[in-house]
Simulated assay, not measured.
Amino acid sequence: MFQTLVIAVLSIGIGLAACFMGYQLFRFLLPFLAALYGYAVAASWFSPEAWFWPFIIGLIVGLIFAFLAYFLWSITVGIGGVTLGFGAGMQLAAFLGLGSMLAPVIGIVVALIFGFMFFSARDLLVMASTSLAGAGLALTGLAIMLPGLLGWLANSSNFLTFILTIVLAAIGFGTQYRTMAGRNIYAVMV
Rank of each mutant, 00 (worst) to 15 (best):
F71P: 03
A138R: 06
V188D: 14
F65E: 04
F173C: 15
F114G: 00
T76A: 13
L63D: 10
A111W: 08
F116P: 08
G62I: 10
M117W: 13
W51S: 12
M101C: 04
F114I: 01
F55H: 07
R183M: 10
V105K: 04
A43V: 09
S11A: 11
L30S: 11
V126G: 00
I79A: 10
P147F: 00
F55T: 15
L139A: 14
V41W: 06
I166S: 00
P31T: 06
M117Q: 08
P147V: 01
V109E: 03
S129Y: 00
F55M: 15
V110T: 14
M90Q: 13
F26Q: 06
A17T: 08
Y186K: 08
L168V: 15
F159P: 05
A66P: 06
V109D: 00
S74E: 03
G107I: 12
G22T: 01
G38V: 06
L25N: 10
M145L: 15
I14T: 13
S157R: 13
F114L: 07
G148E: 02
A133D: 01
G141W: 01
F119K: 09
A121E: 12
V41R: 07
S74P: 06
L59A: 15
L112R: 06
P147I: 02
A18N: 12
F71Q: 06
G174F: 02
G85A: 13
L124K: 14
G78Q: 07
A128F: 07
I75Y: 10
A42C: 03
G134H: 01
W152A: 15
F114E: 00
I57V: 13
A94F: 02
I113K: 08
L72M: 11
G15K: 08
S47N: 11
G78Y: 05
W152T: 12
